[in-house]
Amino acid sequence: MGLVEKGVFGKKPLKPVTWLLNYSRKYSLWMFQWGLACCAIEMGAALASPRYDMMRLGVIPFPASPRQADLVVISGTVTDKMAPAIKRLYEQMPDPKYVISMGSCANCGGPYWDSYSVTKGVDQVIPVDIYIPGCPPRPEALLEAIVMLQERIQNEGLGNDELAQRWRGEHVVVDNAYMAARV
């Protein structure tokens, strides 16, 4: 996305180009799976078991390193000992990057809400785009989250100010009118 970053489009992004870029982006998500606990098994089931087969949604698992990934799925319990590693991983990922927090533990601490060693929510460490509730969420829920993320990516603006906003970690504003026009 180098062109976009440097502001070739200036203030007014070209809608068709944006659409095309986003369309390509959303179907080639390199997903780094940060499996931490029980939820990791459900994520593994979503990835590896023939019944769910996440790759058909355009998600490419097992990138060689986080520097190659567009999306990280934090699935499971985040402990205070683990949190620095997660932050470092997130910083290594190239922009634009997305985070899915899978499971109650990653969302808010889940069953370990009162523990002395569990971080109560991964969003204290890194910004999160999609939360998946459940303990554990079913693999279908992860697929749903991917679809929601793809929708969000599709509707992202690529203008400079819009991207800057995205990088501030705020929520991307979904352009409803645009979505309606697309349908």
Binding site: Y112, D114, S115, V118
Partner: peptide, 22 residues
Amino acid sequence: GYMHRGYEKLSEFRTYPQITTL
């Protein structure tokens, strides 16, 4: 210890039926 959640401590703060969940 990257996954240490402190079960033994948490068990002291829960009732028996709650612990099975844990």
